Simulated assay, not measured.
Amino acid sequence: EEERKRRRPPQVAAAQALALLRERWGLQEPRVVRELVSYDDRNYEVVDDASGARFVLKLHNGVESDKPPFLEAMNMMMAAIDAAGVPCPTPLPLTGSGSGGLTALGVELGGGGDASSSHAARLLRWVPGAPLVTDKAQTESEWEGCGEMVGRMAAALAELDPPPEALTRMHLWDLANFPSVGAYVSCIKDESRQALARAVLSDFDSEVASLAASLPRQALHNDANEQNLLVADGQAAGVVDFGDAVLSFRVAEAAIMLAYQALDKADRVEACAAMLRGYARAAPRLNEDELRVLPALVRARLCCSVVMGAYSHSQDPENDYLLVTQEPGWAALRELSLMEADGGKREAFTRRMIEAYADGCGGQ
């Protein structure tokens, strides 16, 4: 599926985007401000000059466009999260022809003929704020606030019972499927990094696999990274990008959040501890098995990010966004994987996460 996404990205001309905004959503004076970075979709910041309102026009890759139930599952998740008080980019209803839904299906994009392709499109409300990664003066309080926001999101998604059936899917970025990443390790040319990736895969097999069947599962955002957590004035402000949503291990939401929090930090352990404290205040309570596998899942997500980023860039060398976590990701993965005797912080990380989680739960 990752390879198919690479082969089927949306291609759109400015005139097509403007016509789409007028015809499907009734914007009177739409204007495309800029294209936003994306892994495999096309996203545009849009302003309606008639009203001054801002939006995101999201054109889905061809794989997701062929799966309307998955797109509706994302809409359902965002509605639940927004209702719980966590700002997120909920979709606007269609107007005019095809009105009544939230997703425009079968939108023909491209230059016509063989260059044309059919895609799904949604117009999303703009969430004010900036990605956490852009804040160069991050504070412990800000990290705790972001962790609490992810915890509130997890609590809201836990209420989707039963969760949308479309979230049960084979997805490489689902930590339950982490062993599948092993097929891509050979794309890593550096031998020491390749060995590290294989060691993380082995850790997953020995520490997580035997417990996997009993770990609680729920609907997940599945990508609470420093690009998708928004902040404003030092406070958590919202969550964006639900394209990796999946039904998987409940504890994975925390593990993914911590994996990206570990990037580019002077003290990774304490930075992660602050965010986990906030998460614990608001999220459904994790059980002993979930806490036991949490460190291994953090390493697994870091490994997935650097391996799949390298592989995807080899398939799409013009998209440098795919390399955003490479160097900081390998540095974090090495430090959190090595034992203290070898200069790492593996044991310290495990101990500190247990303490921080207990602190967030009120010492229980």
Rank of each mutant, 00 (worst) to 15 (best):
V269G: 11
L94S: 10
S180C: 12
A14N: 04
G26V: 02
T134V: 11
R277A: 14
D66M: 09
A252S: 15
Q364S: 14
A224L: 06
G329Y: 11
A166M: 04
C88N: 02
K58C: 02
R352S: 13
S214A: 15
L211D: 02
R169A: 08
A219C: 09
E335S: 14
A17S: 11
P30Q: 06
Q235F: 00
D233T: 05
A158Y: 05
G129N: 13
P317T: 13
L286G: 10
S117N: 13
T168D: 12
S141N: 14
A236H: 11
N75G: 13
G238C: 05
L323C: 12
M153N: 12
G362V: 06
R277N: 14
A348G: 07
F178S: 04
P9G: 08
A158N: 06
G145N: 09
D40Y: 07
G238P: 06
Q227H: 09
A282L: 12
L105I: 03
P91T: 07
L94G: 08
R301N: 02
V32S: 07
R193M: 10
G147N: 08
V107F: 01
R292I: 13
R152W: 02
R24V: 01
A158V: 09
G96M: 03
D114C: 10
E191R: 01
L36K: 09
D267M: 14
K5D: 09
V56F: 09
E318G: 12
A259Y: 05
R4W: 15
L105E: 12
E35M: 03
A209G: 04
G100L: 08
G278K: 07
Y260T: 03
V33K: 12
F70I: 02
C88M: 01
V240A: 00
A224T: 08
R7W: 13
G62Q: 03
R169Y: 11
H119C: 01
M339H: 15
L302G: 05
S116I: 01
L247V: 00
E290Y: 09
R193N: 14
P91N: 08
L160Y: 03
L21E: 04
L294T: 06
